[in-house]
Design a protein around this nucleic acid. Structure first.
Lengths: 117, 117
DNA sequence: TGAACATATGAACAACTGTTCATCTATTAA
DNA sequence: TTAATAGATGAACAGTTGTTCATATGTTCA
């Protein structure tokens, strides 16, 4: 038996069906973490740089004009969510975009904001 | 004349060229705001609900089991960034996904997190 | 009109975030 | 080995966020 609390439009059974098609809590939380990683000017710029070519930390540091620490922290966040990946190259640590999903995410979002005058 | 501060890999001219292809500050900030809106369990669930069918506030309220106030605040955030749009329907306010970019964004992100076992 | 329902919004507080500073580890080249 | 360079990380502080509570606005129907 369902409660029919308030709104006339509410059909509790239908709502339950809709909720079942929402990703489970674990995945919602993961997605939330991904979007949260993308919600930073610095990290976004890092991704738009890496989108063009893989780069080491100090290249990013020079390009972005923030401290090495800030770049490194930003990269860790992106790395932990598998948005970027790393490769050692001698004394350099080279970062690159993890996969096409990431490219699509930032490109889709750019299109969205560019659309508005 | 450019400074060659640190890293051997750094080629200042090349870096300048790369930076020119990064979206300008205004758009980066807008994207940042969009991702920041997507970085919330409640708002993500709202979008995954609206993705299935347009809904009024009280339907969302029932589905999500948070206060009406929280839903309404969440919707405002999404609305301000044109991620959802509104339509009046008698005494109801019906919300729906703004466009395909938004669908793609959340679907792309879901794929990304589902990929990791 | 007024009562009931649907939605919006401001205030406020706890929780979280991004940056810098200081410091530590790892790698290279001499 | 040692000095120099590349990168990582913890602490800490100022700034930001999401929720609830209380209340205001808007719509319908009797």
């Amino acid at each position: 038996m369902f409660m029919q609390d308030k709104c006339d439009r509410v059909n509790p059974e239908k709502i339950e069906t809709l909720m079942q098609k929402v990703p489970d809590s674990e995945n919602i939380t993961r997605m939330s973490a991904v979007f949260q990683a993308l919600q930073s000017d610095t990290r976004l710029k890092i991704l738009f740089l890496l989108r063009q070519k893989e780069m080491c930390v100090c290249e990013l540091e020079q390009a972005l004009e923030v401290t090495q620490s800030a770049v490194s922290h930003g990269l860790r966040t992106l790395r932990q969510l598998d948005l970027v990946r790393v490769r050692r190259e001698g004394k350099f640590t080279v970062y690159y975009i993890a996969d096409e999903h990431v490219r699509t995410l930032i490109e889709m979002c750019l299109e969205h904001v560019e659309e508005k005058t």
